[in-house]
Design a protein around this nucleic acid. Structure first.
Length: 291
DNA sequence: AACGCGTGGTC
DNA sequence: TGACCAAGCGT
């Protein structure tokens, strides 16, 4: 059997350089893999690690989390950011408990149906937890393929059908090998083919990388808008929710008013948090994490 | 399809 | 020092 191009050097590189991450260990359950993948959406590994450990110690199975009120998940989420992911993970735990007999599904479409599980996460869980064969296309893989295959420094802002075809064409035939390839190419993007300063000297694909062979032409596409944060509703929401996370129980409105001066923005953000199910307005005028 | 959604580290 | 970036998702 003839594996696709790139597979052998990348798999060999991974065998030597892979990080020892808890969700990659042999004893990591599919639930542990799912938890890690949701936490890792837009959040760096180093910040995920302590929260992941505490989470799985407290809730080793989906059923353990499903018994809790959603607010406990939001509180345990800490400062990982995008706290709706905590709500999604809690809702997924309940769906898994009720619809899948407490077992994280292995099927891509069933995974995809869970709240907060999109194309990437479904492929990642099927692949990493169950050794299925799926193209796993995250920001790391997209960047590696943009450089090695397409010859440009950065991928487009939005995923294209062409990228998916490329990723699928590079997948080894044997599912367990494909699963290892997927985690390996992702790790290569995370450790070597990084966004800012790629370490081409350490790259197993250095001799065949289209971008490097072309002299590393700099990105020339449209300017990629940076995310501003200071003064946004996002920052306001974060400040409001932090008050509730730190409180033992329900809080008076005045405590929320204290953390954000702009009343209009504060009210708008609080209303949005309530709408999102992250905050529960009580009958007595106080506010709490959702029960 | 572009935008909103948290937080913190880096150069 | 302020952009940029980090294992995306839902609308």
């Amino acid at each position: 059997m003839h594996e696709p191009r790139y597979a052998e050097p990348v798999l060999t590189w991974y065998a030597e350089h892979a990080r020892d991450l808890p969700w990659r260990r042999p004893d990591a359950s599919p639930w542990a893999v799912l938890v890690s993948e949701i936490m890792l959406q837009q959040t760096p590994v180093v910040r995920v690690l302590p929260v992941y450990e505490a989470w799985l110690t407290r809730w080793p199975t989906p059923a353990d989390l499903a018994k809790e009120p959603p607010g406990e998940a939001v509180r345990a989420w800490g400062r990982l950011g995008y706290p709706r992911r905590a709500l999604n993970l809690h809702a997924s735990a309940r769906a898994i408990t009720e619809r899948h007999d407490g077992v994280v599904p292995a099927d891509y479409d069933e995974l995809r149906a869970l709240p907060g599980v999109g194309a990437y996460t479904a492929a990642a869980v099927a692949s990493f937890a169950y050794r299925r064969r799926h193209a796993v296309l995250d920001t790391n893989v997209r960047r590696v393929l943009a450089r090695v295959v397409t010859g440009v420094e950065y991928p487009s802002k939005t995923q294209t059908a062409a990228e998916i075809r490329i990723a699928e064409s590079l997948l080894p035939e044997d599912p367990p090998v494909a699963a290892r390839w997927s985690v390996a190419i992702m790790e290569l993007g995370a450790l070597v083919c990084t966004a800012r300063t790629p370490r081409c000297a350490d790259c197993p694909l250095v001799t065949e990388c289209t971008w490097r062979l072309a002299g590393k032409p700099p990105y020339d596409g449209p300017p990629r808008k940076g995310q501003t944060y200071a003064g946004t509703d996002r920052q306001c929401r974060g400040s409001l929710l932090a008050v509730l996370r730190h409180a033992e129980g329900p809080v008076e409105k005045a405590l929320l008013d204290d953390v954000w001066a702009d009343a209009l923005q504060r009210e708008r953000s609080l209303a949005a948090l309530i709408e999102d199910g992250l905050v529960d307005p009580l009958d007595d005028g106080r506010y709490a994490l959702p029960s």
